[in-house]
């Protein structure tokens, strides 16, 4: 996974240590399994600030694989990752729509 440089319009993601689930950092420093709840950085400094919070969480052995992910605002004003890898992490395998976070949405449909 190529590391991104901190910039505006990013979110912080990681995997929860205990479950392995993909998680996304919220503005108050907690982790959510929903990228729409994530904090979208407003600047490189903001990304760095969020990254520091995430690294502190890693140091507390709560998450692994902390990284930045490019993101944008959806139509509903919530953030969503843009790159393929993060997009797939946010939803689940594209070849198994019944698995991962997308499964809940699929059932609701």
């Amino acid at each position: 996974m190529a590391d991104l440089k901190p910039a505006a319009s990013q979110l912080i993601s990681a995997n929860a240590l205990w479950t392995g689930q993909a998680v996304f950092l919220t503005r108050d420093g907690t982790w959510s399994t929903d990228p729409a709840q994530a904090a979208l950085s407003t600047s490189a400094e903001d990304s760095l600030h969020l990254l520091e919070m995430a690294k502190a969480s890693n140091a507390r052995a709560e998450v692994e694989l902390v990284h930045l992910a490019a993101a944008t605002l959806r139509e509903d004003g919530r953030p969503w990752p843009t790159r393929n890898r993060e997009y797939i992490r946010a939803l689940g395998p594209t070849v198994r729509r019944d698995l991962g976070y997308q499964a809940a949405t699929a059932r609701a449909d």
Partner: peptide
């Protein structure tokens, strides 16, 4: 963990 067969992948272990 890898020596014991455990990876961390995109969605989970």
């Amino acid at each position: 963990r890898q020596m014991n067969g455990v990876y961390l992948q995109l969605h989970a272990y």
